[in-house]
Design a protein around this nucleic acid. Sequence first.
DNA 1: TTGAAAGCGCTAACAA
DNA 2: TTGTTAGCGCTTTCAA
Lengths: 341, 341
Amino acid sequence: MDDNTPRAVTMRDVAQAAGVSVSTVSHVVNNKQGARIGKDAWERVQRAIQELGYRPNAMAKDLVKGRSRFIGLVADAIASTPFAGQIIRGAQDEAWRHGHVLLVANTEGNDAAETEAIAMMLEHKVRGVLYSTWYHRQVELPVGLTETDCVLVNCFAAGGGLPAVVPDEVAGGRQATRMLLAEGHRRIGFINTTTPSPAQDGRLEGYRGALAEAGVPFDPDLVIDAQPDQEGGYEAVGHLLAQDATGVFCHNDRVAMGVYDAVRERGLRVPEDLAVVGFDNQEVIAAHLRPPLSTVALPHYELGQAGVRVLLGLDQPADGGRVVVPCPPVHRSSVSTVAPD
Amino acid sequence: MDDNTPRAVTMRDVAQAAGVSVSTVSHVVNNKQGARIGKDAWERVQRAIQELGYRPNAMAKDLVKGRSRFIGLVADAIASTPFAGQIIRGAQDEAWRHGHVLLVANTEGNDAAETEAIAMMLEHKVRGVLYSTWYHRQVELPVGLTETDCVLVNCFAAGGGLPAVVPDEVAGGRQATRMLLAEGHRRIGFINTTTPSPAQDGRLEGYRGALAEAGVPFDPDLVIDAQPDQEGGYEAVGHLLAQDATGVFCHNDRVAMGVYDAVRERGLRVPEDLAVVGFDNQEVIAAHLRPPLSTVALPHYELGQAGVRVLLGLDQPADGGRVVVPCPPVHRSSVSTVAPD
DNA sequence: TTGAAAGCGCTAACAA
DNA sequence: TTGTTAGCGCTTTCAA
């Protein structure tokens, strides 16, 4: 664009215009406690700032203070899902609240991009970096990350060591199952994923826990592993119906979407013939299925938030270095016909 | 976290360790052309850099060079949709390619947040800012934005003046309609949105254009305005079927999703009984509906990319200050049963 | 209540 | 081929 950069107005310009020294300007700009500035000088400075349209130079400020107010956030999938977006939003809101700004880098899982992103952050002397993934999993730590404070968000590292903020899969699975139990269901199917992951283990554990809690015996025939998407859900329904399931807990909302299709195709209805609850609370899907899907939310926003809190030392991870964030149930209309189950 | 910041290693430390001056170090670090450094000194510097784990300080560098390598991106909805995510990704990739880094701020449409975000960017002396919205519309320019170079992404301002990068709604509408025309359809419904917007006008214009092009008379009864979501699509189907429509172009993918539901409920099938094409190419929906939805893609990634290109002066907007980005058709299986229409 | 001056980590003349 | 030096815009003692 236009390159006639008219040299930004600096503190010196303001000082000159106000007829004071730069240190005086500095004091009023930062509203310094210690130094008491005369009302008169103060006003002249303010006026000069207005008139010249002065903006402090954050880089110069950070340079002298020896630390920046940046927090790096490297994400593996800003694009593919709305999930990363929520993490970013949570992180940003919280960072902002504490006077920090987010430097985000999307790596799409690409190692080179990751290394470059981290180098960039290190060179900007970030306060620390949040390393996040769009689905909960174990990660290999990129080198370079050891050079600064780092907290893992929605993932965790092999050796432990690094603080990690993750969703509570177990409690989430329990919540989902309880929603069905509460409506009187006893034959509750669980379409789990075929992908080994904390979600696979945790949600199953939660499912079993809720069943046990309600005195319902666990029946392995009611648990079926399927591809974690529409196809998987669609195909699992036959089996579950043959097992006399009256309700089903789906590994995620997309699976639930497939279940809806299969149910409809059989001339049956949700929730009358089969009650269903999902997982993730993926807005575009869950809220707009017919009927709207009851589900359990993956707390991405809160994950991002918690990430910066522990990075900034505002929250302490418990022993084990894990901060576990709850997955709240979201009641809509796929479990019971009476408005929000 | 740990606060025993061991004072970062600086260029001076490296110089000392290598037994040379800082300027020598500067030269090798930046691989300066002009200055010829002795092989010996060069190696000693490299070694010192390795051993000390030196990282240049980007802030100091930018400070002396008088300009940062930041590009600001303010978005109104990182969260609600995957759309903003794509814009960010496109912008970031392109910025990165030219040695710039993105400073992103999510404002959720909140004015105060917007002002604060822009102030922050200005203080970081960004090279310029990209102001983007998640759906194509006219915007009021926040004050402050005039203090720096700015390009609008997926939106445009009242007065003109600012360069804007927007999707080609008209060509997109034409593409969508052509997909149906190509399969021999002549009675083609169009479920448009009730919301006044460039999308509403543009897509209709494209629809009419394609019809004219194919010699099919325009029938107002085939165009119906509906709420741009599942509900709207669901409810519009009855009318369209009564008009003997054999194909329908939906204002967006969510509307198409509602159309699917209504069609299924009548015991009919897509595409045999009603061919449908959407708009947006919202991955979670379009790719996973049954059958997968043929649609026209909103080029968010390219919008972000183009945004930084014009900001950096790499691309020149045509007269009128608009850069119009094409919306490519995405062929799946909702228009024709023979694999990808 | 205000100002002078040193210095944050780096680049870029200019000297040597 | 390498070093010296003067800033970049700001904060912060320390003096006045």
